[in-house]
Amino acid sequence: MKFGILVNEGPYQHQASDTAFNFTKAALDKGHEIIRVFFYHDGVNNGTRLTTPPQDDRNLVNQWSELAKEHELDLVVCVAAAQRRGIVDEDEAKRHGKSADNIAEGFHISGLGQLIEMGIKADRVMAFGD
């Protein structure tokens, strides 16, 4: 089955990111296809490489990056939601005159159209959040 994954909450504050990650990994292990993981609302906070949790805790951002590398996952962070919350890549940083970018490896910033397209292409969209 072709799944689209929507993550609507930030990491650590809310378990939705963990559950989305575990679901994505389990689906891939079972041979399903993940056509995209789309991060919206506070979910965009999954995509900052500045995240530094205590060493004895999971590092969700790194987990996503590693899973993306392993399975060539399309991790998309919504641009409008990201701008509000200070998640920027190199281009966005330049465009808005910011001194640095913080997007994590394997993530990229794109528009809400990617969410709709995911809904059209996927057999099923799984949303994680409240």
Binding site: Y40, H41, A80, R84, L112, L115, I116, E117, G119
Partner: peptide, 19 residues
């Protein structure tokens, strides 16, 4: 919370997709 506002943004962008 921001859910209503950002939810509306999805609807407006989604309208371009003729679904």
């Amino acid at each position: 919370t921001i859910y209503a506002l950002e939810g509306l943004e999805v609807v407006l962008i989604g309208a371009a997709f003729d679904q």
